[in-house]
Simulated assay, not measured.
Amino acid sequence: MLPIDGDDGFDRVPDSLVLLIFNQISDIRTLIRCQAVSKRFNSLVPQADTLLLRVDRVVSAGELDDSDSLLVTFFRSILKPLYDLVSHKPLPDPTRYQKSPGQILRGFERIRELEIELPSGDLRLEKGAVIRWRAEFGKTLRSCVILGFRGSGGGAADLSGGGLKMRVVWTISALIAASARHYMLKEVVREHGEIGRLVVRDQEEEGTVVMERDGLMECREEEQTEEVGDGLWWRSNRTTVPAVRMRMRHVPRLQLAGGIQMEGATLVVVRPTTTGTAETEAEEQCGDAALAFGAFGGVYGAAVEKLLKSRSYLLEMNSF
């Protein structure tokens, strides 16, 4: 139906449909641009509840101001690109975003799903090595699955001597990277109580941190306790990794469909050491499989399937 003279047909589109479109867009920079389109868009954009925040650059430790927290600097690094996108219109004083990391998202009223994309992975590995990891958190680490290998021609490595030590280093490095990302999220979790799912990943798909609804609730409850305590968690730049059990599986050479070959393929499933009833070997193996298949799909899922059939090695590590 053609609009009546003087009547904008787009105004007939209900707000609920516009918000559905905004949630499909999700990218915060694009949504900020949309706010400049009209007064209506300006009022509706803050109601978007599914958001993607892309970070151009993570500032190195050498660039940190002593008065700034890690997360303040993290979010400050994305302030300038956002400001550049909307510099054609009047904006509130941008320095206010530097007061608190949560303020970069405070313009959104009811975030329910948030994904943060980092520019690159955290690990610095030897040439030819590839690591993929996925960690789930509540107030602390709940689980972490790590898959490591070398590409074809990288040379196989066994689990004796240096080979085992190298893979333990890979595991510890992934846990440290995951705990640093979790710590980085605490202010966002506190500022936005309606978030039901929070994911941090990087463009290179090296690592992913996931917090689901129950984990977010647990994290908020823990933080309320810490805030009225001595505040020790503010003195570190990452969340403490609890004592964990690591079950490691290794295949010197893994041949997959399509001619894909992985040298020294290693799967590590990390879970906190519990004080309750110990799992049987079969229960633990079943739990490992569920976590591993939940972490990886595609070609990595095929690698996981074969690795789960191989012999496993159990290691334990104290909290750090």
Rank of each mutant, 00 (worst) to 15 (best):
M1Y: 00
L2F: 05
P3Q: 07
D5K: 14
D8T: 12
G9H: 04
F10N: 14
D11H: 15
R12N: 08
D15W: 09
L19K: 14
S26W: 00
I28W: 04
R29W: 05
L31F: 00
I32P: 01
Q35K: 11
S43P: 13
S43T: 11
Q47I: 00
T50R: 05
L53I: 00
L53K: 01
V55D: 08
D56Q: 09
R57G: 07
V58P: 02
V59G: 06
A61Q: 12
A61M: 07
D66W: 07
D66C: 06
D66A: 11
D66F: 10
V72H: 07
I78Y: 02
K80T: 10
Y83D: 02
D84W: 05
D84L: 13
P90Y: 12
R96W: 01
Q103Y: 03
I104C: 07
F108R: 02
R110N: 13
E117P: 03
S120W: 04
D122L: 11
D122P: 13
L123A: 15
E126P: 12
E126R: 14
E126V: 10
V130Q: 14
R134T: 15
E136D: 12
E136Q: 10
F137Y: 12
F137H: 11
S143K: 06
C144H: 04
I146Q: 08
L147A: 04
L147I: 08
G148M: 02
G151I: 02
G155I: 09
L159E: 06
S160K: 10
G161K: 08
L164A: 13
M166L: 14
R167V: 01
T171Q: 03
A178I: 01
A178T: 06
H182V: 14
K186L: 14
R190G: 09
R190M: 13
I195K: 08
D202M: 10
Q203S: 14
E206Q: 15
E206R: 07
E206S: 11
T208G: 13
V210N: 07
E218I: 00
E221A: 02
E223V: 01
T225R: 14
E226W: 04
D230E: 12
W233Y: 10
S236I: 08
N237D: 15
T239R: 07
T239C: 11
T239E: 13
H250S: 12
V251E: 12
R253W: 09
L256H: 08
G258T: 00
G264S: 10
T266R: 11
L267A: 05
L267P: 14
V269H: 04
R271C: 05
R271M: 06
T273P: 03
E284D: 15
A289I: 02
F296P: 10
G297C: 11
G298P: 03
Y300F: 15
G301T: 14
V304D: 00
L307G: 12
K309M: 05
S312H: 03
L314W: 00
L315C: 09
E316W: 02
M317W: 04
S319M: 10
S319G: 01
F320S: 08
